[in-house]
Design a protein around this nucleic acid. Structure first.
Lengths: 191, 191
DNA sequence: CGCGACGTTGATTTGCCTCAACGATTGTGG
DNA sequence: CCACAATCGTTGAGGCAAATCAACGTCGCG
């Protein structure tokens, strides 16, 4: 819990009331490697804050192939943003890639807090805006870069992650096959 | 101006004060086909609301190739979201694809209004959230679909646009070449 | 130990790109 | 009003980057 509060306090002042309200709607959890926090087809609407460790969201196609939409580590939010704001069932799975400490908050409860504490809503707006910028950049990368360039960009963007994330998940994030990623890695190593 | 107000009033109640404030920061403009509303490397921070017509944002690579990030028609917002919320110069161009009627608002002015009228800020949050969902879906499409599938998805998603948008721009939006799009179109037509 | 998950490597295929050429259309100036 | 250039869509030939298919080594774990 303290991690989340400390994180928010970097940007805005948190009154005692807000802290108490926040505590009430937040459920802290320790999860193991491989554990599913949210499964597809769930009607739960949650946002997850990562206090430590690493998670990802991914989509399973009928043919069994997985596509990673997002990785998140310390101080990131992660969620199924495609269904978070509507009534549809979840499309994505949220999975932990390591032993992680996370905070789970119901979207509905969060919305109430945004309204009750305008400065908190403002902070959230900033988060949304940053996420939009990040998503735009990702789209741009997918449109313009080769497999090798995408991986190199990943390495600089996500430096921290590297160790915890299996390569086949990185590949599914970049939109290439694990085999291609392996060849790209070799090419980079021997140059 | 009325278009923007009517659009917002679909979601929230607009007080006379808010309407007046909104009018003060909005500049209405009629633009022609091919006209640039925002050029790259500008330090203007604006959001554009489309009252009628059709616009797009695109990025120019050094080699001259263009990549379309977004199309927008009646009742859409369009902007360079990658630089809207920070101090960097604009990366994208905003161009009109037809005779269009648009409203231009400075981001800074909008921010003030969000703070002054919380329910207006809420409406904006909803917009941001919808945009995030849309961007996620687009990323998912880029990760999973073939050229043909992407075009078919485009046709259903953007039915309305079809007529105004040149094919080479659609191609640059889908991340394929105009030649490939042409072949895909022929394939679809003869089946 | 033996199994399964993961990464790598090789051989082959393929979807899409590149390059080039050619109509069709549009708009522009003489 | 027509000639001309520019823009756009299409088509073909050839090439390439990445996918597919298959095999194998390694590592961690029950």
């Amino acid at each position: 819990m303290t991690e989340l509060i400390e994180y928010i306090e970097k940007s805005i002042f948190l009154s005692d009331n807000l802290i108490n309200d926040l505590k009430e709607i937040t459920s802290e959890k320790n999860v193991e490697k491989g554990e599913l926090i949210l499964n597809e087809n769930s009607s739960r609407k949650i946002q997850v804050f990562v206090a430590s460790g690493c998670l990802r969201t991914y989509f399973k196609k009928k043919n069994g192939k997985e596509y990673t939409l997002q990785f998140a580590t310390k101080n990131w939010w992660i969620s199924d943003y495609m269904t978070l704001f509507n009534k549809e069932k979840s499309l994505l799975c949220i999975e932990s890639l390591s032993h992680s400490k996370i905070m789970i908050i119901e979207q509905l409860q969060l919305e109430k807090l945004y309204s009750k504490y305008p400065e908190f809503g403002l902070k959230h707006r900033m988060n949304l805006q940053n996420r939009i910028a990040a998503l735009q950049k990702r789209i741009f990368g997918l449109l313009t870069l080769s497999a090798k360039e995408k991986y190199e960009k990943f390495l600089t963007d996500y430096e921290v992650f590297e160790k915890v994330i299996p390569n086949y998940q990185i590949a599914s994030f970049l939109g290439i096959t694990p085999e291609s990623l392996s060849r790209v890695r070799r090419e980079i190593a021997t140059s």
